[in-house]
Design a protein around this nucleic acid. Sequence first.
DNA 1: GGCGCCATACCGACTGGTTAGTCTGCTGCC
DNA 2: GGCAGCAGACTAACCAGTCGGTATGGCGCC
Lengths: 224, 224
Amino acid sequence: MRSETEADEPGKGAARDGRRSGRQVATVPKTTEQTTTPVPQRLLAAATRLFAEQGYDRTSVQEIVEAAGVTKGALYHYFGSKDDLLHEIYARVLRLQQERLDAHAEADEPVEKRLRDAAADVVVTSIENLDDGQIFFRSMHHLSPEKNKQVRAERRRYHERFRALVEEGQTAGVFSSATPADLVVDYHFGSVHHLSTWYRPNGPLTPQQVADHLADLLLRALRP
Amino acid sequence: MRSETEADEPGKGAARDGRRSGRQVATVPKTTEQTTTPVPQRLLAAATRLFAEQGYDRTSVQEIVEAAGVTKGALYHYFGSKDDLLHEIYARVLRLQQERLDAHAEADEPVEKRLRDAAADVVVTSIENLDDGQIFFRSMHHLSPEKNKQVRAERRRYHERFRALVEEGQTAGVFSSATPADLVVDYHFGSVHHLSTWYRPNGPLTPQQVADHLADLLLRALRP
DNA sequence: GGCGCCATACCGACTGGTTAGTCTGCTGCC
DNA sequence: GGCAGCAGACTAACCAGTCGGTATGGCGCC
């Protein structure tokens, strides 16, 4: 375990660009580019795209490092294994969504609005990170057992938080109690999960419009 | 999970014992027995289970043939490739669900009931074939391009049929038109797709109960 | 203000293991 | 005697991970 990839801010300075090397591999555009993206992030980005396109197993480490413009040495310098890459992708999206859900859930608003906002927000961020979602739901089983367990635990936290919102509304009587809250949550996240199958960025609907529609469907289903 | 000789009826094979090998694996009764499940079906069943458990890529054809009690020769006698196996699994579930949807859609009932029945039925059959669903949504990208295209086309047919039901109700005014029918369909199938991630056969709800709840959510969301 | 020393960041050939698919051949039935 | 239905050794390809090697910049010390 030696992935200390965090803590890297995108870069602070101006056109600093230390004379890289004699043999350059992929030559990141050096012309007045203010930040050459750090290698770990390039690797993660390349892996995300390739995993989403071809699947985890169909993507060789060689392809990833080529897409990132480095070599295997670099990858194994920053990550312990191919599996680590996948885990890092999961951790990133989980962190993001948990933060946003917490923010919405704690807002000082009526529960209907909090739920609607949270439900719509997860749709928007899911669309903005369609690749992550694709990988998430398609490749979970490629994670090592411990990592899988860890990811599941965090997912459960997320699920619980969301469910609590639904239950709060049900108890308060503003939502129908006809359906168990658990099922309601799974119903909604099914549609989120499903987004990467049908949503196309150049389609007729903007992410926000889709989000509004899906949140609306949820709230309508919950009308008493 | 070494399953060598199980699941088959003990072959009552008489004296027949090639001097070549002392280890034979499954001993299918060769004496004009017509009932032991045919090899192709055994292979399909084994592949379905293993693909669902471990994923397509993580399952070697060696594992499949061992689970089916045959050898590679048999598999490649009946199927052109590992890919073919996957395609066959898809084709089977697609055929089944299309048939059932058609039956519901054509029934002589008010549109609300037809939609509710169809929506609930797809949930029940999906639960009854959780493995197929898991494979379907997780491994589509492993299909060869042409096969993938074919499967997509059939899926679209299915989607269209379902959408037509929603639109019929919207036009008739019994369903709200607030949400485009396409989105409504994707919303519902998202939850179906998602079933394999959370539904557990030994959980508190029967397949029918889950189906009723999910169909109910759909119909409630469509209330004018 | 130069010098040795080392850590960091990366390179890329190599290894050991795995796998899909092939091919030759056996065997019991018609 | 011919053929469907299979057995199972074999091969060619591939791939995750390793490891010895190289360039660069910082730092203490004289």
